[in-house]
Nucleic acid binder design. Structure first.
Length: 428
RNA sequence: GGUGGGGUUCCCGAGUGGUUAAAGGGAACAGACUGUAAAUCUGUCGGCAAAGCCUUCGGAGGUUCAAAUCCUCCCCCCACCA
């Protein structure tokens, strides 16, 4: 099966340029394509997972993906589809972030022996000379056309405006494509739907300057059924870096997937075969939750490795009750399906001295201290509303003092609401 | 450079001297119902050991018993003109 068909079937493709030629191009085998990643943070988040997975699929089909870290373009800032001007990053920050991103990408894509390349456009963009660039590249761009581009529309019509540095972004990205075409024979650029304008400009530049046909694919913007952008939570983005989002939290994010999103997400965010994923259609109640468990496990395993995924799975089972995933639900998944001793080492926890506990700590202070609530006031409110629990017993007084009587097997389990847990352990 | 319009609590957005921790909506959180889902209903939604006190309306000063609201200077954004 051609990769394009695989990607289309799994929901990765929003738009392509010249579709038929593109399929033919892939049929030649061992083609080269690229996606740019902006180094705006030192970690990628769930929002980048679609581009990453698509590169991984393409590599599995025997082609050569290029991950282009935008060390150069990150110094300019892409205004596409953004309502606000990006804060400018310092070269040091960009460099630092680029390293973090490289590390994360290599979990999904095999960069050994030239099977995939990771490049940084700072290598060529920072060398550019202004006047030659304007004469060679700039003259191929029509401002009349650029200002009509959808990607600039929001900014031209909105309140924020568009400044000149950002206006140049499109030229730089087009130049990247030209450069990768010249150097690596790369004929396909992919990106989010907001990248359409930038991708097209690269395709046109190559046609004008090299008289060659190259291609573009955009991915749909993935939102949850309730319309929220993928990976956005109150606490901020869900990161791929375990320092920023622990594997347990990451797993929990996926387990909380809306019923209506399970199939779509399994297709996009796991490598499980489509015929198994389609069977989820028939599942309901407990079985549907099992499917979510598989989704969470597989997604966590991809980013954090099997060991962390198993830990997160066990921790969740110990808190929420074990659920054995039946063999008939997505048999290809490597999720553990037997009864095991569920440990909970991945549940967020902190250590206290026995003395501190014996001295007594007001419950609301402790909830605040371990981070279950953002302030003491919020903790007090939580208790008033009946949402605070110790060892699964509701706290009924805001005055409640926690002391050694609350110790249960040398631990105290704090719970805020239905699903946020924290364990207090005694330091030995 | 000129003229006009703006900057309010997480977001949008009311508020032009006191009853304003600041309307309304959204988001979020809790409870009920459930399946760690959605929908619905109810409540909460600046901080603080808290019937009180403290901090907040772009920033810094000032007037006043009292300022998000009035005055001065500064910063930032937008539109039109140049």
């Amino acid at each position: 099966m051609n990769v394009i068909e695989t990607l289309r079937e799994r929901g990765f493709i929003e738009k392509t340029t010249h579709n038929d030629e593109l399929v033919e191009y892939f049929d030649q085998g061992n083609i080269t394509c690229y996606i740019g990643f902006d180094p705006t943070a030192q970690s990628l988040h769930i929002g980048s997972l679609v581009p990453i997975m698509s590169l991984a699929h393409i590599q599995k089909h025997g082609h050569r993906p290029i991950a282009l870290v935008g060390g150069g373009t990150g110094l300019v800032g892409d205004p596409s589809g953004k309502t606000e001007t990006r804060k400018l990053l310092t070269p040091e920050m960009v460099e630092h972030n680029a390293r973090g991103i490289e590390k994360q990408l290599s979990r999904f894509i095999d960069f050994s022996k030239g099977k995939a390349l990771i490049l940084n456009n700072a290598d060529w963009l920072t060398e550019l000379k202004y006047i030659p660039f304007l004469r060679d590249i700039g003259r191929h761009f029509s401002v009349n056309r650029m200002i009509k581009a959808e990607s600039y529309k929001m900014r031209l019509e909105g309140e924020e405006g568009l400044n000149f540095i950002e206006f140049n972004y499109m030229l730089l990205q087009a130049y990247d494509f030209l450069n990768l075409f010249d150097t690596y024979g790369c004929r396909l650029q992919m990106g989010g739907s907001d990248q359409w304008g930038n991708i097209i400009s690269g395709i046109e530049l190559i046609r004008k300057m090299r008289r060659e046909t190259v291609f573009g694919i955009t991915f749909p913007l993935i939102t949850t059924s309730s319309g929220v952008k993928m990976g956005k939570t109150v606490a901020g983005a869900v990161w791929l870096d375990s320092e920023r989002t622990s594997p347990y939290e990451y797993y929990q994010y996926w387990i909380n997937t809306d019923d209506n999103d399970v199939i779509r997400f399994l297709a996009l965010y796991t490598f499980l075969p489509m015929d198994e994923i389609r069977d989820v259609e028939k599942l309901e109640d407990d079985d549907l939750n099992s499917a979510k468990t598989v989704l969470a496990f597989e997604a966590t395993q991809l980013v954090h490795g099997r060991q962390e995924a198993v830990k997160a799975y066990h921790a969740a089972a110990s808190m929420f009750g074990a659920r054995i995933v039946s063999e008939r639900i997505m048999p290809t998944s490597t999720i553990p399906r037997d009864k095991a001793d569920f440990d909970d080492i991945s549940v967020p926890n902190s250590f206290f001295d026995l003395k501190q506990i014996q001295a007594g700590i007001p419950a609301f202070k402790l909830f605040h201290f371990v981070g279950l609530t953002p302030s003491g006031s919020a903790a007090t409110r939580l208790i008033k509303q009946g949402g605070a629990y110790i060892n699964n017993n509701r706290i009924d007084s805001t005055e409640y003092m926690i002391n050694e009587n609350d110790l249960n097997n040398k631990e105290i389990l704090l719970r805020a609401g239905k699903k946020r847990f924290h364990k207090i352990k005694i330091r030995c």
